[in-house]
Design a binder for these strands. Structure first.
Lengths: 140, 140
DNA sequence: CTCTGTGCAAAAATTTTGCATTTTG
DNA sequence: CAAAATGCAAAATTTTTGCACAGAG
């Protein structure tokens, strides 16, 4: 779904080149930091401000077009909501992020949400552990 | 398990009053920030530095006596490893944290860890969503 | 033409580092 | 006494805010 432009317009927000570029980059990548996005844009269109990236991400999160996550290491990560359908497993040491399908876990997570009086829409499930690479390095 | 003092000693670290107080507070509470712990100590023993709290938490995390988590809102949260046996469900808006038993989810999470070449020990499973209170507020 | 969005600069919030002094074992 | 830990000050990192100017509708 590439529907951010329509949603922005419908909600009375302007379609600036900055916003379109940020959205475009979010379509390509998963779990990007504001800094990642900023650098990516700078390659082709130098001059965009990091502040603008933060403000745009905040707007997109508010409109539920983007989801923000905090992983055990590193800065906040952003990804387009339509990229979700998966969850993260993050190494607490090196920060490497893997994905897994939520199929089976999601049902259980939804049950938990109901029990705890949380909304079941857009549940995010993050597992953190230590990847075996880091475990090996620790031993040496 | 109140074993931090023994582990510290065994690993050649000193048992300072600051460390003991921090550990003591971690025994009582769940998901505390460095600032929370600092303020708690200041009530009875003014003068401890926030830096010391951070350094001690880092040490305890390194010794796997404490686990650090980042939730969707707010600063890093710390809790004693022996308090774990549960996972978190966090509201992305207000940051309220609930707990749930991992019994059933843990088996699934462990399977995922193995598939992804992560260690299954001390897996942390965090669900983030929006609590129904915040959902109601949004509507008004 | 108006109002929203941007860039720049500065601040805020959180965490980390350097170094002189104190404390533990 | 020697090594390690603390406090203080300063820096680093990440994110947020204020304001004048520019650009979208």
């Amino acid at each position: 779904m590439h529907h951010a432009p329509e949603v922005l317009k419908k909600e009375g927000h302007k379609l600036t080149p900055q916003r379109l570029m940020i959205w475009h980059i979010l379509q390509a990548g998963r779990h990007l930091s504001a800094e990642d996005i900023h650098q990516e844009i700078e390659k082709k269109f130098p001059g965009i401000d990091l502040t603008t990236v933060y403000r745009t991400l905040e707007l997109l999160v508010r409109l539920e077009l983007v989801q923000e996550s905090r992983f055990p290491v590193g800065p906040h990560q952003y990804e387009a909501t339509d990229k979700l359908g998966h969850s993260h497993i993050i190494c607490r040491k090196c920060g490497r992020v893997h994905h897994f399908d939520v199929a089976d876990l999601l049902a259980a997570a939804n049950r938990i949400c109901e029990n705890q009086d949380f909304s079941c829409a857009d549940v995010e499930l993050n597992i953190s552990s230590v990847c075996n690479d880091c475990l090996k390095k620790d031993r040496s």
